Every structure is written in structure tokens, then in C-alpha cells.
Simulated assay, not measured.
Amino acid sequence: MNVNQIPGLNTLGVSLVRIDYAPYGLNPPHTHPRATEVLVVLEGTLYVGFVTSNPADPNQKNKLFTKYLYPGGVFVFPQGLIHFQFNVGHTNAVTFAGLSSQNPGVITIANVVFGSDPPINQDVLTKAFRVEKNVIDYLQAQFWWSID
């Protein structure tokens, strides 16, 4: 929950969330532009990770850090970095996360890139992702819908 759901969090600098994952459930690549996230696993097995971005050491650029987490496991996702969680188990998984802002924000990468309104020009996306137009058409179709 953040300050939008619980106004009493205003000025406290924290948000909390419980996340329940179905077997093979995914919290897709996303970022929190205003908060670091600490995730604790209560039940299940998660594969989690984040990707560095613009680090001081050029050898660490876009480096993926991952870990398998089991009950009691903890992982930190630094503020602003793209990260994900994936339930690799055959059973449900349950986590709690604390975020270092009462309004951490969330940007889900695929939704933003392929589901923008209006859509991002396909020439931009084909060049950015180095794929053919039909791939972009397919991806945009997964995220785009008309409200008629």
C-alpha cells in the first residue's frame, strides 16, 4: 500500500505490499523511480533479479544480478533499477515488500513501451529492438486495446 491507498503514510517515507504469486507467476520487469525495495519471501521459491544501469564501473554496465529465494530469503532492488520476480515453484508463493517512499511509483517496462497511447512509432521500435516490423506488430497487439 502507498500513500494513495493509506493517506496516513504521508511523510513517513515507506510503503508496504504483499504479493501473492500463482505457480509460475511473474511480476514482470519494472522499476520504482522513487524507492528502493526490500523483498522477503514467506512461502514458495522465487527467482529474482535486477539489471544495473549506468554504473560508475563501465565493466558492470547492464549486469544482471539474480538469486533464488526460499522462505525467509531477502533481496534488495536498488531504486530506479529494472527488476523482476518469478515463482519457479509448483505451489503458490507469498512475499512482503517494503519500499523506501510513501509514493514509490511503478513503471512496467513492456506495458510502457508496447502499450503506449498513442503507440510509439514502429520505426523507432524496430530500430531500438533490432527486429522486424511483424515482431513489433505482435508485441503491440499484446498490450494495445481499443475502448470503443
Rank of each mutant, 00 (worst) to 15 (best):
T52P: 13
H32K: 06
R34Y: 08
E37N: 00
S53V: 10
P33T: 13
T45L: 09
T52Y: 14
H32P: 00
H30W: 11
T66M: 00
H32N: 04
L42E: 09
N27F: 00
A22H: 10
T52G: 13
V41E: 03
L39G: 04
D20M: 08
V51Q: 13
N27T: 10
T52N: 10
N62C: 07
V48P: 00
P29A: 09
D20W: 00
T66A: 00
A22M: 11
N62V: 01
L42Y: 11
L69N: 11
K63H: 14
V41T: 11
A22C: 07
N27P: 01
L16G: 15
Y68G: 04
G49Q: 02
D20L: 08
V38C: 07
K63G: 03
T45D: 08
E43T: 09
P55L: 02
L64S: 03
P28S: 03
G25D: 02
I19G: 04
L26C: 10
K67I: 04
H30D: 06
V48K: 01
A56Q: 09
Y47A: 12
K63A: 13
A22E: 15
Y47I: 04
Y68H: 15
P55M: 05
N27Q: 11
P23Q: 05
V51T: 12
D57S: 14
P23R: 02
K61N: 15
L64D: 05
V17K: 06
G25Q: 02
N27K: 08
Q60F: 11
R18T: 15
L16W: 03
Y70P: 00
L46K: 00
T31L: 15
F65K: 09
L42W: 08
P55S: 09
H32C: 01
H32E: 03
N59A: 13
K67P: 12
G44M: 01
T36F: 06
N27V: 08
S53L: 11
D57C: 13
D57M: 11
P29T: 02
G25M: 05
G49M: 06
G25H: 06
L42M: 10
V41G: 03
R18V: 15
L64C: 07
R34A: 02
Y70C: 01
V48C: 06
K67M: 05
S53G: 14
P28K: 07
G49S: 01
G49D: 07
Y24E: 10
K61D: 15
I19N: 01
N62W: 02
F50A: 04
N54V: 07
L46V: 00
D20V: 14
F65N: 09
G49W: 12
P23L: 08
Y70V: 03
T45C: 05
Y68F: 15
L26F: 04
Y70E: 03
P33C: 08
Q60C: 08
N59R: 12
N54P: 00
Y24K: 15
L26Q: 08
